[in-house]
Structures are given as C-alpha cells and as structure tokens.
C-alpha cells in the first residue's frame, strides 16, 4: 500500500470461517482517495502526501476548497504567471470533505498529484494500523475512564460505590500527585489500533473487513496505515 488510505467505519457484523467459527469484523469503506498535494522538503520543510476522501457538493464548497483541487484561474494567478511563478499542480477532482496527510520522510512513494488510491492497495497486506476518533463520553467517572474497581455494594459503603477512594497521602506530601487518575472528559480522542488483521478486501464495493473493533462511531473517519509493529524486525 502506498502511504495510507482514508475510510469510513460502516459498522460491525460477523462472518463465518470455513471451519465454522465466527469472527467479528468491522466493515470499513476505504477510498477511493485522491492525492491532492505532495509536500517536499524544499517547498514545505517536510515530506508528506495529502490525500482527500469523499466528494463535497461544489455549491457547498468555498472557492478556496474548490481551488485546492482544481485550477480555477483568476486574476491573481494570471499576475503570478506573468511574474514567472508556476502554479502548483492540481488533482482536478471534485472538492473533498476530508483531507489527511501521511508523512513520507525519506521514503520513495512514487505518487503524484491526481493519483487515485483504492482498497486494492490493501490486497497484499495481512495486517494494518487503524486510526480513528473514539466516541466521546463526556464527563466520566473513574470506573469508566480508568477502569477502577469502585467500592463494595455492601459492608457499610454509603453513596460512594463508584468512587475512586483515596487520591493520596496526608500531611506529607500535603498535595495530590500530578497525573493522579480522576474523573473528567473521556473519549473523543485520537486512538490507534495496531496490527489489525485484514479478513477480506472487497474491491467492487471499496470495502475492507477488519477483524475486531475500530475506534469511533459508525460513519466516523478512519485512517488506514502500514502497521508500525515489528517495523524494526529484519524480514527473513
């Protein structure tokens, strides 16, 4: 797979293996994505490939959004041309709703603006990493947020069944240690799940089936990347 893909989590279901065992899978609609910009050290200070996913209605896209993916011309560009400045290459596609960059520092990706990336790129991979935004849970207690055990239901426990208990010592140190786990905002974070097995790639429907769960709600945006697990291992 070149760099990475953007996708949308569709939902979970289960499929049968040949031996009759059932496996839980997440269906992800992945691609087609369009390369909208290639960043280089000379022009941007770092190397990356910017990828766009899902079309946006042209009427709803701003001129900047349309101009990012297609050459709109205009007086200013005309003036720059006359001054000898080459306009940046455009993908010439519909405006996109989602953009993400994939860093490519020092690696040979061979992509140029306008290239299309599809799920077929995943066909020869066994496992990938998936990045998503987890479901927001608002203000959550310590049992949900930090997997605390809570307190007993009986034996004199009153009204503190889901509390965390003590948060520190006494006069020494006379303060709460930094980083103490307490209730608070939970979820709506960027979460990476590594080394997810690819069960099946459905090129016809631009779908990929991943074994197990993927962060985020159904319909949420996910990034599919090369797995970083075992990346230092020498391949035999």
């Amino acid at each position: 797979m070149p760099v990475g893909l953007l996708g949308r989590k569709i939902g979970m279901t289960q499929v049968f293996e040949e031996d009759g065992s059932r496996i839980a899978v997440t269906v992800v609609q992945a691609g087609p994505c369009v390369v909208t910009q290639v960043k280089t050290v000379e022009s941007d200070g770092y190397e990356a490939v910017q990828v766009g996913f899902l079309d946006k209605d042209r009427r709803k896209a701003s001129r900047a959004e349309r101009g990012h993916v297609a050459d709109l011309g205009g007086k200013k560009q005309e003036a720059r041309k006359q001054a000898g400045v080459e306009p940046a290459p455009r993908a010439n596609c519909e405006p996109k709703t989602h953009f993400r960059e994939f860093r490519t520092d020092g690696e040979e990706h061979g992509l140029s603006v306008g290239d299309e990336l599809t799920v077929e790129a995943l066909a020869d991979l066994k496992r990938i990493d998936v990045v998503g935004t987890s479901k927001g849970r608002g203000t959550a207690g310590v049992m949900k947020r930090h997997n605390f055990s809570g307190q007993r239901a009986t034996h004199g426990v009153k009204r503190v069944h889901r509390h965390g208990g003590s948060i520190g010592q006494s006069a020494d140190p006379a303060r709460v240690m930094k980083g103490t786990k307490m209730p608070g905002r939970y979820g709506n974070d960027r979460v990476t799940v590594r080394f997810l097995e690819i069960v099946r790639v459905d090129a016809e429907n631009n779908a990929v089936l991943l074994r197990g769960a993927v962060p985020g709600p159904n319909g949420g945006l996910v990034e599919l990347k090369h797995t970083t697990k075992n990346r230092h291992k020498k391949s035999a």
Binding site: I10, G11, T13, V15, V27, Q29, R200, D202, A207
Partner: peptide, 13 residues
C-alpha cells in the same frame, strides 16, 4: 442498515 454490511455478510450466508 448500511448496504455494505449486507455485502460483507453475503458470502457467509
């Protein structure tokens, strides 16, 4: 229900 879920299940039915 999303049609892609049905497509994913189709081969297991």
């Amino acid at each position: 229900r999303h049609p892609l879920l049905d497509a994913a299940e189709a081969s297991s039915l």
